[in-house]
Design a binder for these strands. Structure first.
Lengths: 192, 192
DNA sequence: CGCCGAGTTGAACTGAATCAAGAAACGTGG
DNA sequence: CCACGTTTCTTGATTCAGTTCAACTCGGCG
């Protein structure tokens, strides 16, 4: 259940098995079935979650009822609404399983305690968040500079196989176009 | 020269004066005059910079020659192209002073050493980057959901006084529209 | 079998970009 | 302190990418 987390942490910092065993005690394993929600808008985001297996998405619903996907959470990724998790305020995001998933959950109090007992993890999380920030800045700038078609092909090369795991209308709502537009882009691409 | 940095760090972590005095030795003060560049695209981003005074912007230029602003760096903010700074690869960003500015620069080797000698700063940077990530995710989602007009009024309320310090075409390139569009939005707003 | 969600296609519409031209503000040198 | 060029801002006409609305197909599933 904890293999992926251990691998991921060992990729960035040096941590003893003993320390990791201690870290494990702060997490709560949870299985979440496809189409079930870990977080619904209006509720506070109580958990930050590590995806050991499966696939999640975090998304918002705007005034017109359209979904906008912030993140796909694949194996080895962390998913949460950070702002709500840190402040305890109601979240504007939903987090839903797109496949039957195995998660490791941690609450804010546990996370605080984990970091104070194993300060070496500050570094792990700093680097994790740092990489996430770089990727998000990149996505932001690309949304301003490149066309929807380029964003689509970029997504496919960044997450190979995603189009087999995620319905197209969700891919559309990740790259920021309607399902109709993505459908048209795809037919253009396939006719050269 | 270091007052703002010390304040900012003390806002998030507990650090002794002694430790801060040691930290100071890793930074290089620099004055950068208006319209001068700290980083030009094609060069690696050698420094991460803390703005003690003044105003910077980081921006990209796309294929058509249009500028897109990633960040305004006001007093108390950190500015860099993180990816290039961490990897040493050529940057696609420019960093320019919009006002005569006083900066504190730190190189990658110094930063690594600083963090290993004062690991308490891991926490400071983790929280700093965390807040930056939240803000960037927010901006990304808002670019997908709300209109250019709302983004403009949001910007004005988030950075009061920015329209006095930054020319309008740069505000346009921050919110992701052309100068012409922003001009028209503004005239609509002022005629109710 | 009928229903429902997912995807496609068409036609009309719209917000913003582009192209173009002119007005206002700014700053630098004489 | 004025004159000149440069940068910034505005306004208009046209074009275009993407949305919206609507109808239809396809495949899975109770």
């Amino acid at each position: 259940m904890f293999e992926f987390l251990q691998n991921k942490i060992n990729d960035t910092i040096i941590i003893s098995d003993q320390e990791f065993e201690h870290a494990k005690t702060f997490f709560m394993p949870k299985k979440l079935r496809r189409k079930r929600f870990l977080l619904q808008e209006g509720d506070p985001c109580v958990y930050t979650c590590f995806v050991e297996k499966g696939l999640l998405r975090s998304f918002r619903i705007d005034d017109k009822g359209n979904e906008h996907i912030l993140q796909f959470g694949m194996q080895g990724w962390w998913v949460a609404d950070l702002y709500s998790f840190l402040t305890g305020e109601a979240s504007e995001y939903n987090i839903e399983a797109l496949e039957d998933s195995e998660l490791l959950l941690i609450t804010k109090p546990s996370w605080d305690q984990l970091l104070s007992e194993l300060p070496v993890l500050e570094r792990y999380f700093r680097i994790l968040i740092q990489n996430n920030l770089i990727a998000t800045q990149n996505r932001l700038m690309r949304n301003m500079t490149i066309t929807a078609e380029q964003r689509y092909t970029n997504l496919l090369s960044e997450f190979p196989g995603i189009s087999q795991r995620v319905p197209q209308h969700m891919i559309a709502s990740y790259i920021g176009v309607t399902r109709e537009t993505l459908s048209r882009l795809r037919s253009q691409i396939s006719h050269q």
